[in-house]
């Protein structure tokens, strides 16, 4: 196989290795979906083809070896490899077709929105309860009585009643939960509970009680205060 093909093969290999194994290990990153890796590889391949075919000479140098390989014209020791490719490609297409058409047998994919948008009347509300040590302490007391069975005495979502519920109760110590939300959002979620979620929140699965039927608003605001203080988090603000 000619020299012109070695460079593109190395580039594609390095690109795949970087996307698959290097990027996920960069702090703050995550494993890339296979569809995104494929997209990047296609873009890389497109770039290589454009680069290698800008002139007639480079085009011949690029395509010529591949044409020789496929036709089997003077490829010497690569002949068994060529037969392998010619057998492997139809089998690969057949296998992928089977995977794409065979009944999956898997339950429907569920894509629940964890923090759906609140109704307009629950945006931008300020906590009307003064932030005093007494009120925070009272809020923690209400939290212990009403919330901790699921959300946990340590505010970590691991209360004794949590294990059977799917979705699991929120972990308030996790910086991606209440730390990303305003107090008015929590007020909405606590008041309306699971049944108050919009459809993208899959309300039929949530065990969160509709506390507006049992607790006065003042208690709910105090609970919010106690949650933030107990979980060592601060509400999101706009400044």
């Amino acid at each position: 196989m000619g020299h012109s093909l070695i460079r593109p093969i190395i580039i594609m290999g390095v690109m795949y290795a970087v996307l698959k194994f290097v990027l996920p290990n960069i702090p703050g990153s995550a494993a890339l979906p296979s569809s995104l890796i494929l997209l990047y590889l296609l873009l890389t391949l497109s770039g290589i083809i454009i680069f290698e075919t800008v002139s007639a000479e480079s085009k011949d140098a690029f395509w010529g070896p591949m044409q020789k390989f496929l036709t089997g014209d003077n490829i010497g020791g690569l002949r068994p490899f060529r037969y392998g490719i010619l057998i492997f490609f139809p089998l690969l297409v057949g296998w992928q077709t089977y995977n794409a058409t065979a009944p999956s047998g898997q339950p429907p994919a569920e894509s629940r929105v964890i923090h759906p948008a609140p109704p307009g009347e629950y945006t931008g509300l300020a906590n009307p309860v003064p932030r005093t040590p007494e009120n925070i302490m009272q809020g923690k007391g209400f939290y212990a009585a009403f919330c901790s069975p699921c959300h946990g005495a340590n505010f970590d979502g691991k209360g004794p009643a949590a294990r059977g519920y799917n979705p699991p109760p929120a972990n308030f110590a996790d910086p991606t939960t209440i730390a990303m939300l305003q107090e008015s959002y929590l007020f909405w979620r606590i008041k309306k509970g699971g049944v108050g979620l919009p459809i993208e929140g899959m309300p039929w699965k949530s065990a969160m009680p509709r506390w507006e039927l049992e607790l006065p608003d003042e208690w709910i605001w105090k609970i919010i205060m106690g949650e933030y203080d107990g979980a060592h988090q601060s509400p999101r603000t706009w400044e």
Partner: peptide, 19 residues
């Protein structure tokens, strides 16, 4: 080649979430 690659990628991306 691109069609074959797309078939491979499409199938790899089509797996459902396990429940």
């Amino acid at each position: 080649v691109l069609i074959a690659t797309l078939i491979v990628g499409g199938a790899a991306d089509g797996s459902a979430q396990e429940s």
